[in-house]
């Protein structure tokens, strides 16, 4: 059975009535599993027709992005100006065809540590909005992802949106892959500078079981520099910051790369992100 509800409340009701229904959004992960025989759906809840999931809005400095908005719409245009790091991350997702279909809801639902958008959500302390049978609940993204491909979503729940603060200072994203396009991340990072609360937030992808916030490196940096501006960040501080971020990573060796390279690479890109922040 295929369900194509037009509203979130209908969708939640369907999950109450048919708890085995599998949630389909952009399909870029879901269908790979079907095609490879790892998932044989008997009933599917498609979010395609729920228009409000495919929109975004801005209010009081908070940007709310529907969970089914495709990445292509984050790459350019007004949303890209509000969230440059998200735009940069979106541009690295798969191919143009994948970006026309893939969504934040999909990256969150799959909860792979290699999910390209996730370091941005972590660095911006995103809030995940989840529709439940009784209404809505909100979770910090750091509480949402609990392990590789595991998250805090319960049966019967649907990720409906992500809330992020609009950019107030430099933000940047970087992702290492062996090819110049359409490549799975080997290591990625997002850095967000907030001159108002004098902080730099740094999240790393593909170097641990979940996305990792380099909290110790962030704290060290805050102690070294006055982050009211980026002007006091020196090249030496950038190098040390990268080294400390690498220390906080927990990479593994697999067929895509080695733990040693991933740690090294994440040090290099976090250092370079801070250099870009300093130059901004």
């Amino acid at each position: 059975m295929i369900y194509s509800p037009k509203s979130i409340s209908n969708a939640v009701q369907i999950l109450q009535d048919d708890p085995d229904a599998q949630i389909l959004s952009g399909g870029t992960d879901f269908m790979v599993e079907v095609n490879f025989g790892h998932r044989a759906p008997t009933s599917v809840l498609s979010l395609r027709a729920i228009k409000e999931l495919c929109t975004w809005s801005q209010q009081d400095g908070v940007i709310r992005i529907g969970s089914a908005l495709p990445y292509a719409q984050m790459e350019t245009g007004p949303l890209a100006k509000l969230l440059p790091a998200l735009a940069q991350a979106a541009r690295t997702v798969g191919s143009p065809q994948i970006r026309a279909a893939g969504t934040l809801g999909g990256n969150l639902g799959t909860s792979s540590p290699a999910g390209d958008s996730l370091p941005v959500l972590y660095a911006l302390d995103a809030t995940i909005i989840i529709a439940t049978a009784t209404g809505e609940r909100r979770m910090a993204v750091k509480d949402f992802m609990v392990g590789p491909k595991r998250n805090a979503l319960s049966k019967g729940e649907i990720i409906t949106a992500v809330e992020l603060p609009a950019s107030t200072g430099y933000q940047g994203y970087s992702k290492v892959g062996v090819r110049n396009a359409m490549v799975i991340s080997i290591a990625s990072a997002c850095l967000v500078h907030n001159p108002i609360d004098r902080s730099v937030r740094l999240a790393m992808g593909t170097v641990g079981p979940t996305i990792i916030r380099a909290s110790a490196a962030e704290k060290w940096l805050g102690e070294e520099c006055d982050l009211a501006s980026a002007s006091s960040i020196t090249p030496a501080i950038c190098a040390e910051f990268g080294r400390r971020c690498g220390d906080e990573s927990q990479p593994i060796t697999d067929h895509r790369s080695t733990a040693e390279y991933r740690r090294h690479a994440v040090s290099v890109i976090t250092s370079r992100l801070l250099e870009r922040c300093a130059a901004s």
Binding site: Q88, R91, T92, G172, Y173, S174, K175, V176, G177, R179, N180, A181, V183, S188, V268, I269, R272, E275
Partner: peptide
């Protein structure tokens, strides 16, 4: 590095 913006 391409769109991954890794390069300086």
């Amino acid at each position: 590095g391409g769109s991954g913006l890794t390069a300086t």
